[in-house]
Amino acid sequence: MRAHPVRRTALTCAATVTVTVLALSLKPHHQPVGTLPPTTAPAPSSSAGAGGASSGVRTVTGPTVQTRYGPVQVELTLDGSRITAARAVQSPGGDPRSRQINASAVPALIKETVQAQSAHLDTVSGATYTSEGYIGSLQSALDQARA
């Protein structure tokens, strides 16, 4: 009768060790914030116009998206159809916690924008509202640029 609880304890310990090892072996999706490229871009040499989506360097600004914690707005710099830079013109910052969260979330979103060359981004954990607002403004800016 006593062998059964011991067996259960051994299995529980083995499962705990397995889960811990698996959790520790996971790699973060995003690289550390310290490795982010600069978020400013050279001044655009032309604006979007008769040349269409594939001509010259230009800047396109998406609409302001209101989130639960404040507004988010994205500005893109494109060279032809390639995104060369992105920046958050506005991001939630009405309280210290929002400023803290967005100090790392916004640079991660910017870096992912330039890498992905689209609005198909992962949301940043802990900054879901900012991520969703950013992606919405980004998609609108891309739509404007490609119109």
Rank of each mutant, 00 (worst) to 15 (best):
T9V: 11
A103D: 12
V19Q: 14
V19L: 15
V21G: 02
V124W: 07
T61C: 10
G80W: 04
T113K: 06
A88V: 00
H120S: 15
P28F: 09
T113V: 04
S125P: 03
V106E: 02
G94C: 04
P71K: 09
I135N: 04
L76Y: 11
T12Y: 09
Y129Q: 13
I101S: 13
R58E: 04
D79P: 00
A108T: 15
P28M: 12
Q139H: 01
Q90C: 08
L121V: 05
T59A: 14
K27R: 14
A43V: 13
A3S: 08
G56R: 01
L36G: 15
T64L: 01
V19H: 12
S54H: 08
S54Y: 02
G52S: 09
T35H: 07
G34T: 06
A10T: 11
V60P: 04
V17S: 13
S140L: 08
T39E: 14
T64M: 06
I83V: 11
A14G: 13
V21A: 09
G136F: 04
V114G: 01
S25A: 15
P92G: 11
Q31V: 07
G49A: 04
H30D: 09
E75I: 02
Y69C: 10
H29M: 04
R2I: 15
V33G: 14
H30Y: 12
G93A: 15
Q139K: 10
I135S: 10
V33I: 13
A50I: 10
Q144M: 07
G80N: 12
T39N: 06
A14M: 13
S140M: 06
H4A: 14
V6Q: 12
S104Q: 01
T39Y: 03
G52D: 02
A41F: 11
L11F: 07
L142T: 06
A53E: 02
A119M: 05
R7M: 13
S118Y: 02
A141L: 13
T67D: 08
D122Y: 00
A3C: 05
P37H: 02
